[in-house]
Design a protein around this nucleic acid. Sequence first.
RNA 1: GGGCGCGUAGCUCAGUUGGCUAGAGCGCUGCCCUUACAAGGCAGAUGUCGGGGGUUCGACUCCCUCCGCGCCCACCA
Length: 855
Amino acid sequence: MNRIPDKPSLDGLEATWRARWADEGTYRFDRSKERAEVFSIDTPPPTVSGTLHPGHVCSFTHTDFVARYQRMRGREVFYPMGWDDNGLNVERRVQLLTGTRCDPSLPYDPDFHPPEKVRSGDRPVPVSRPNFVALCGEVVEQLEQAYFDLWSDLGLSVDWSYTYRTIGPEATRTSQRALLRLLARDLAYRSEAPTLWDVDFRTAVAQAELADREIPGAYHKLRFTGPDGDDLWIDTTRPELLPACVAVVAHPDDERFQPLFGREVTTPLFGARVPLVAHELADPEKGTGAAMICTFGDTTDVTWWRELALGLRTVVQRDGRLRPVTWGEPGWESADPAAAQAAYDELAGKTVRQAQARIVELLVDAGAMDGEPRPITHPVKFWENGSRPLEIVTSHQWFIRYPDKKAMLARGEELAWWPDFMRVRYENWVNGLQGDWNITRQRFFGVPFPAWYPVDASGVVDYLSPILADDASLPVDPTTVAPPGYDEGQRDRPGGFVADPDVMDTWATSSLTPQIVAGWTDDPDLFARTFPMDMRPQAHEIIRTWLFYTIVRSHYEHDALPWANAAISGFVVDPDRKKLSKSKGNAADDPIALIARHGADAVRYWAAGARPGLDLALEEGQMKIGRKLAIKLLNASRFALGLDATTAGTVTEPLDRSMLAALANVVEESTAAFERYDYARALERTESFFWSFCDDYLELVKNRAYGSAGEAGQASARTALGLALVTLQGLFAPFLAFVSEEVWSWWQEGSVHRSPWPDADALRAAAEADATAADQPDPAVLTLVAGALREVRKAKSEASRSMRADVTSARVTDTPDRLALVARAADDLRSAGRIETLDLVEGEAGAVWVVLAPE
RNA sequence: GGGCGCGUAGCUCAGUUGGCUAGAGCGCUGCCCUUACAAGGCAGAUGUCGGGGGUUCGACUCCCUCCGCGCCCACCA
């Protein structure tokens, strides 16, 4: 007891306990435990390229609530952390931060230093690939540190010894091995295919990273020439792709075009003869009912091109400009090659935007356009972080086949979703899948493909016949290691090999986080103890990516779900319900500052207010309440312990039995809520009990605990206080991690975070100890007596009297059964209210008459 | 266009299978230096439960419909 401070305070608690937890290994994972005893968490590795914001605090704290709960429930919690530090977003961030741009054609410069100061208008400095990768590595380390600091401030109960990086050797080995195994089973393949392409970042992007944006465009009505020489008008928003036109399409049931199907029409300006084909995706209602098919204007073009087996005329190249083309050559036939060439030469080398402006002039001059362009706004596909619309280019890419939809939907059924309605998003996504998963990025800082390509004697590279690395050689970087059977001297030489120049999409690695963190490639023993994992916490926005892809990989590799539960958290939003914008970055949004201002427990309390899957408003007011709660727990604990609270005695007083019975119900509800991943409710139940415990029970029992009613009553009070305190401290521990540990340390051994979760049955047994039939614990005793006490206080308050004012007499009127309950604790009521004469009178409703003693 | 979620006091939110005068905290008002807590405590006021129908003895809770907000998805000529 002498460990209780005179004047308890939150100051310094966080630093003290953070250090103690680290020293004592409070959260260390005990890997001697078997799978059934383990609760393993597939931590979301934060994308270190992002800016720290309150959303991170919220969702990561939610995971910590569950981790702490499960640990107290007796599970050995495997709670690692990872850093997602590879990928396009990291490169973007590094480019912006360092004022550089990777140019793979440059040689390595050992003396390279990035610009000292970076201003937003400056031209980026070109650097070689090895320099750029090294730069990324440095920047990433700083970024990780910022996240580590935040998690540490927040008190996440992570075992840092299992920290991984998605660019690290284990992650690389896992990614490469998993790909090789898929290739061996023909579940992954290499192919040249039309691919969505970001012309600014010059890389392919996957379906999951697309975002539609409404942007202005315009219909242009172009005059094609029909088979019989008559006009055929076609609306298009992309006239600059006219040279890439390979067909005209209309709906098979559209009577206007029935006679024309199978015949040829001629494009304006270029005089190319293209077939008029029928396909159901053509919408008779749109434009003139006939559309031109270009290679490629959008994904529908790709579908048409593939399903109708059309020819290929690509004009947009990887930098977003039109490439040079020679009309009249095979594939570029024209009725008038010279005229076509003249027109095309006006476009070649221009960006699609510039080309559009020019071709409109040419079309108008040629009388091939009807009227002015008609402005519209329409949805166009962007890379979610990009600034220009995606183009579609054909290139060599690695793909993973998707399993059939039925199997994927079955996995979605098998998984427990918290909240359940999030399953629908997954099903939506699965049902809308198209094509296969392109895992290739034409970028630099990422996991390389374990592959090379043979170069024939004439120097031609066969990009479709990769030479694959041996499993034993992983992780491998093909740009620095020669493939099996070759030596380094043959690199980039005729008869030799070239390295695969690309890197994996970040999701190709992130989809393997369970395998990476559980030690699939490097630690089979750990893997057996932790996989399949118990819980995947994540945000709903990446169900289509992270969650879906992870299920795909596990389905293939292990024929199992990667985890049993998916706990989906919402966003943090402004109080005005808008999504918190990352760009704002005002002081109020800095999570480190929030913690400094209000304390970690206060911020954790705020985070606990989010119902699973629902958005949470950023409200500092909530943090203030959390801080108040933490202080209250400090004071109430000190008070109860000052009264010699103990867990050792026996409870005999009806009021004490009642309080413990009510508390047992709280434990039950809180536990049930946690099992549903509804930490918000778990806290709410505990919190509301706790406040009434302080306001009512402590007031009622105070005098008896001091000894006013003799030793037996005092002993019962002390025991009830002790049992309540140990229970409440436990219930609060997952949320108010620091202050709970502090008050626990005043009178208990070990860490509250390693103590058993409160047990409702044990509490009930204690409440019932030696109780006679007439004195069975009933929560209503406390409720009714507290209600009566409230009336007494109200009378004093309304009379502007002190709470210490004496009451000459009080009369409680109620039904006989309720009066009987009040009677059980009448002495406590009289004492707490300072009531001289207390009458219990049978009557209709619950009413209390109070006569105050004269001042 | 399809789907999901949300709409309860000025604010942030509870309200678990339909049931007693709809709750909490913040904010607001008043009172109290009470021997745990004055960066506190006690007490008080405040709501056509988004609108309109319907089922029912009874609906914040179930059904239909409309409105608003948010998110996810969508083949975008």
